[in-house]
Simulated scan of single mutants.
Amino acid sequence: MSAVRLHLVPVRSREAKDFVRAWHRHQPPPAGQIFAVGRPVARHLDDGATVEVTRTASDGARNANSLLYGASWRAAKALGYRRLITFTQEGESGASLRGAGWHLIASRPPRAGWHTPSRPRAGHGNDRVARFLWQAP
């Protein structure tokens, strides 16, 4: 059996969102984006030099997500960003991130919810789940 050769192709925002909607395990497509990465969701991480991978999705092809994480970091650097981060949820191995050379830099305990008096919000579907913060090399 011959190995499948992966390669990147440009896609329009609508196509990318349709793909995420079909293939991502637990999140819908992001509302906004900057060249396939977005501003950090957490306000304290949004320093103008940091961007966040808010979704990746693949059809299960081996090493596809590692390819996406590596390409995201190269693109972010080419656009002048100095830091690229992402989060995984408890139960996700982080193998794709480690394969792309990323580093686990923090763990976040489960939250009771995302609603606060100063920022009313509905649940995100990932309440009460521990999260892990990763950073590109």
Rank of each mutant, 00 (worst) to 15 (best):
82 R>W: 01
70 G>F: 10
77 K>M: 04
87 F>M: 05
93 S>I: 02
81 Y>S: 07
88 T>L: 03
68 L>C: 12
92 E>C: 01
102 W>Y: 11
69 Y>W: 10
103 H>T: 10
74 R>M: 09
88 T>W: 04
97 L>F: 07
72 S>G: 13
102 W>S: 08
79 L>Y: 02
101 G>C: 15
78 A>Y: 01
79 L>Q: 08
106 A>I: 02
66 S>F: 11
67 L>C: 13
66 S>K: 09
99 G>M: 10
75 A>T: 13
77 K>C: 08
89 Q>P: 00
95 A>C: 05
101 G>Q: 11
77 K>E: 03
90 E>S: 09
96 S>C: 15
82 R>L: 08
84 L>M: 11
75 A>M: 12
103 H>A: 09
64 A>G: 10
104 L>H: 13
69 Y>L: 14
105 I>S: 06
77 K>P: 00
106 A>D: 15
85 I>Q: 01
84 L>T: 14
84 L>N: 01
69 Y>A: 12
89 Q>T: 06
95 A>W: 06
67 L>W: 15
73 W>N: 12
85 I>N: 00
87 F>W: 12
83 R>V: 02
100 A>W: 15
71 A>G: 05
76 A>D: 01
65 N>W: 07
66 S>P: 13
91 G>N: 01
92 E>I: 02
96 S>F: 07
87 F>T: 12
78 A>F: 00
85 I>K: 00
97 L>E: 12
72 S>K: 02
65 N>Q: 13
95 A>K: 13
93 S>F: 02
100 A>L: 13
96 S>E: 15
71 A>Q: 14
66 S>H: 11
67 L>G: 11
99 G>P: 13
